Amino acid sequence: MTAITTTLAPSGGGANAPALGGWSGDADYFRFQEHQGYQPQAVLDVLRGKVLGAVFRGMVPAAVCTELAERFWRNGEARSRDGEAPVRYIGAYHYHKTTRTYLDECAEVEAALDDVLAVEGDPLTVFYDGLAGALAAEGGTVRRAAHEGREACRGVLRSWFGRGEFALLPHEDRGQCGEPQQADFEIQRTADHQICALNICLENGAGGRLGVWNIQPDENSKRRLGTVYTGSPYPVEALAGIESAWLTIDPGDVYVFNGSHVHAVEPSEAPDVRRTTLSGLFGFIDDTTVVSWT
């Protein structure tokens, strides 16, 4: 299996296609490090901007993936959302909300999320415990983002079901972290560092690849495209000619990458095939402290 395909996108899009400006990395940076099993030190390389991403193949045992997926799909607390990013999920999203509203929703869903994740070898705990150990060796810590004594959600279980060209349209995660309604929330301090996305694959059939473009859009581009505080969506024509990497993911694989890059998810090739992940965001808020949120 070819796990990663790096391509230079065709230069189409027409003379009127909006140019997308921003930061692009060199060949040493724009790649996914491949590992068999979990290597927490590789996560630190992503957090510190040394490399685009890292993939930990087969990190989660098949039996754990199956049990978590089954618990997710039969849980009556799961919600559905339509719009540009249709999804079924258990968890809370900070996107476009006040800090209070987000943390209220985190508290409301905590019991349901804990119930689904109550399996031996919960991969979210394994991931963050491993990262905590790597950080502790350097005098650092990792914890959930907090405000006035309340904590962010542990993670989000989700299954994207968009059936167009993308199940999840091209977007980046930095814009939403500047939401003015969350000016009091410590996650906004990640803007001075790298904002990393975590995805733990529980189910996936043919297709369902992650696509990442070698561009972190600049403020001028964001203002022109209206993505300053949303990070989404970026028109496909704006990405024409920008190098991209396409990552094939199997159940049990865990991957992290710099979410400030424009990225998207392809739909599964068959409409009855589900792509289910356990996901979250994390980043440094100072030189030694990493926080996570959803």
Rank of each mutant, 00 (worst) to 15 (best):
L8M: 11
P18S: 12
V46H: 10
Q182F: 04
L47K: 00
A191C: 06
E70Q: 11
G231C: 07
I249R: 05
N75Q: 11
G205C: 00
G13S: 00
D26T: 09
F30V: 05
E110W: 12
C65L: 12
R88S: 14
Q188F: 05
Q36W: 08
A118R: 04
S24M: 11
T276Y: 03
D45N: 08
L8W: 13
L168D: 05
Y93S: 15
A85D: 14
E34R: 06
G283I: 01
V109S: 09
I242C: 08
A107Q: 15
V142D: 04
D287R: 11
D173S: 07
Q41V: 03
N214Q: 10
G37A: 01
A19Y: 13
E172H: 00
L103P: 07
T141L: 08
G76Q: 04
R144N: 12
M1E: 11
A264R: 03
F72A: 02
T99Q: 02
A69G: 08
T227K: 06
L131K: 10
S11R: 14
H94S: 08
R223S: 07
G211T: 15
F127P: 10
H171N: 09
E186P: 01
T6L: 09
R224L: 05
A118P: 06
V119A: 13
A146M: 12
E179D: 15
A145R: 05
Y93I: 11
Y128C: 00
A118K: 07
W246D: 05
L113F: 07
D184Y: 09
C106S: 15
W73N: 10
G178K: 12
T66D: 13
R71Y: 06
T276N: 02
R163N: 09
A54V: 04
A78K: 14
E120T: 11
Y93P: 08
G21D: 08
G283Y: 08
K222S: 04
G58S: 01
T190L: 01
N75I: 07
P86A: 00
R174V: 00
E34M: 14
V265G: 00
P10H: 15
Y128M: 09
G21M: 14
V64E: 06
R163A: 15
G76K: 03
V254I: 13
D28N: 05
W160D: 10
Q194T: 15
V51H: 05
H261S: 05
W293G: 06
S244N: 12
